[in-house]
């Protein structure tokens, strides 16, 4: 099925693609047909800067369990970093 699940948010950072590092301006998270993972669907994470071109993109395809794990670890890392900032 085509789920058409996709959400986007502006982000600030850098990503590394085939041409090297470039500024990232947008993150899009989808769950839809996978291109490369060999599964029907995947979590599709795209970190992009479309002002630089369609190929200014760092792409990930993850299964749902990995997505859950990633969210949890991101949350832990962010909380730890914020605690450091408070202590400093």
């Amino acid at each position: 099925m085509c789920t058409m699940i996709a959400v986007s948010a502006p982000v600030k950072g850098t990503g590394k693609g085939p041409g090297g590092w470039f500024p990232i301006t947008q993150a899009t998270i989808g769950y839809d047909h996978a291109t490369h993972s060999g599964t029907e669907h995947a979590l599709l994470l795209d970190f992009t800067n479309y002002e630089l071109g369609v190929d200014a993109r760092v792409a990930l395809e993850l299964d749902l369990r990995s997505g859950r794990s990633l969210v949890s670890q991101l949350q832990s890392a962010i909380e730890a970093a914020e605690a450091l900032s408070r202590d400093a």
Partner: peptide, 19 residues
Amino acid sequence: RFGHGTPDDVAAKARSAGG
């Protein structure tokens, strides 16, 4: 109209725009 690149890059841009 989303631009040109590999099919998956162009499809990703279309997806990010809501299709």
